[in-house]
Each structure stands twice: as C-alpha cells, then as structure tokens.
Computed example of a mutant assay.
Amino acid sequence: MIYAQGAMILSPSSKDAVDPLSELLAVLGVRSIRCTRLEAAGDWSLAFPAQARLKFVAVRRGRCCVLLPGQSAFALATGDVFLVGHSPYTVASSPGVDPVDGMALYAGSDQDVVCLGGHETVMLGGGVAFSSEEAGFLLEALPGFMHVAAGAPSASAVRSILDLMENEVGQSRPGNALITARLAEVLLVEAIRAHIADHGEESCGWIGGLADRRIGKALCLMHGNIAFPWTVGALAAQVGMSRSAFAALFTRRVGRPPLDYLAGWRMTLSRHLLLRNEADVASVAAQVGYASPSAFGHAFKRSFGHSPRKG
C-alpha cells in the first residue's frame, strides 16, 4: 500500500497499466489520410501547410531535403522516413529552390501520383488525421519532426510495410483503398516505435517520456487507471524513485509536471466522452477521478471556458 497526503490508498496492480499511445489514438478517432506518391527530377520544391494530422513521408529512391520553420534543412536519402505533426513543411531537391503549393498538385480526388520531370527521386506520403477536437493533446506532446534513418536497426518493420505500400499506391485493384489506409496506420505506429527506440532518450515531450523506463511506466499507470487518486508520491513509489527525483525527471521528459499531465488527460478524455453523449456529467466526473460533479465542473470550465453541460 501507498501512503499519500496523510491518507492511506491502495496501490493499483500492474494489470491496470495500458499502452498510452494506443489509448490516445483510439480516443482521438484516427482516420487515414490519402496515401500519395511523388516522382521528381531536377529542381523542385513543394510546400505543405500546417494541419491537425500526423504525416509520414518516405524516400523510396534518390535524395531530397525537408525544411521546417526556424530549422536548418534536413537531408534525406533512400530509405529514410520522417514524421511531421502540426507544422508546415517543405520537401525539395535542395534548400534554395522556390516552393510551389504542394496541396494544389494533389487537389483532385484521384490525383494520388504527381510527376515532376522524371523519377530520380520517388517518395510516398500518408498518415492519419483526427476526428476529435482533442488532437492537440497528442500533437503538442510529440516532437514536431521525427526522423527514422534507413539503416536504423529498429526500422526493419517500417521497410517491410513501405514495400507493401509501394505496390498499392496509384493502383486500382480491388480493396486498394482499404489496404493502403491500414498500411499507413500501421506504418505510422511502427515509425513512432522506431523513433522511440533510436532517439527516445534524446527526445523531449511525450515520446521522451515513453522511452524512459520509469516515466513510461508512470504514464501507463495513469492512463490505465485515470480515476485513481494519484499523487506525485504514489507514482514515484510505483516506479521506485524518490518524490523529488521523479517529479523533476517527469517534467524534463514530458514537458509538464506529472499531475498537470494527468489533469490535462482527464479533461481531454472527459470532453471526448461528453461530446459523444456516452455518459452524463456525474458519470463522466466519476470515470475521470473527480469526487463530485461540482469539482469536475470547475476544472472543466477552467480548461475549456464553459461548463461540461455544453460539451
């Protein structure tokens, strides 16, 4: 048992731990965005706007670079994959080429393949968008740019899925749309896994937290039992750390203190449930760990500016 804030509370069992990434994607209502192909040669540059989505771009042949606001150009080669969140970005043959609107080139519903002068460079793109208003919780917690190198030991699954995708994009075989959508979703998760395995210790934000054994366990415990009366001391004890050391490490890794993160996820989950009319206010308050609807209502209004009865 754990003692916290002068009261005795039972420690939740390890079976309560869940996978936070799977839970977030389920709550956010992911849906695949269209998978596309780019073939290009010579000088070219395509700019894409910021959107509430998580996108991957894979270089299947050749070389290119990706440019994000305020950052130096990042060189990519055959087999490299990058993921980009809620940020504008440009892919180009080289940094000095003036970009054109990439979205316009793919504007047609059947325009999945764009050819620009040849096929020295071939790229595949895809990813997921979110049907939930809570997408910001995930996108703000992830690095704006994640790179998975072609030679990374953890990227073998990514390479296998890309081989399958390349056989589907731009084709008109039965079930093509379904296969490419599902492959895109699996590829995205595998790319995140590969990034965690190869760069997790260097990453700030949520990915950095999942990569750390102790902080990752704490995140799983919070997501696994959202209604439990967690304290910093209780979480620290569960992961075998002192209270102060745990609080400092969690804040450094995740970018916000443990109970601030927990409160944010409780609000995110509660609004998801209320918007879908899955339960009334009192039931939702209990589900996310509030002792009374009144306390829940005050917290909800602080977060969203209106009462939970308005969704």
Rank of each mutant, 00 (worst) to 15 (best):
Tyr3Thr: 15
Pro12Asn: 05
Asp16Leu: 10
Ala17Gln: 10
Ala26Glu: 14
Gly29Val: 01
Ser32Glu: 08
Cys35Val: 10
Thr36Val: 11
Asp43Trp: 12
Ala47Trp: 14
Arg61Val: 05
Leu68Asp: 09
Gln71Arg: 15
Ser72Asp: 15
Leu76Phe: 00
Val81Tyr: 02
Ser87Asp: 07
Val91Leu: 14
Asp101Trp: 11
Met103Thr: 13
Asp112Gln: 12
Val113Leu: 01
Val114Glu: 06
Glu120Arg: 13
Thr121Lys: 08
Ala129Arg: 07
Ser131Val: 03
Ala135Ser: 10
Gly144Val: 09
Pro153Phe: 01
Ala155Thr: 02
Ser160His: 02
Asn167Glu: 12
Glu168Val: 15
Gly170Phe: 12
Gly170Glu: 12
Gln171Trp: 08
Pro174Gln: 05
Gly175Val: 00
Ala177Met: 11
Ala181Leu: 07
Leu183Asp: 07
Glu185Cys: 06
Val186Phe: 04
Leu188Cys: 08
Glu190Ala: 00
Ala194Arg: 02
Ala194Val: 00
Cys204Phe: 13
Gly205Cys: 08
Trp206Ala: 05
Ala218Tyr: 04
Cys220Leu: 02
Gly224Ile: 01
Thr231Phe: 09
Ala236Val: 00
Ala237Gly: 15
Val239Ser: 05
Arg243Glu: 15
Arg243Val: 13
Ser244Gly: 15
Ala248Glu: 14
Thr251Gly: 13
Arg256Cys: 08
Pro258Asp: 04
Asp260Ala: 14
Ala282Gln: 10
Gln287Lys: 15
Tyr290Pro: 09
Tyr290Arg: 11
Ser292Pro: 02
Gly297Ile: 08
Ser307Val: 02
Lys310Val: 02
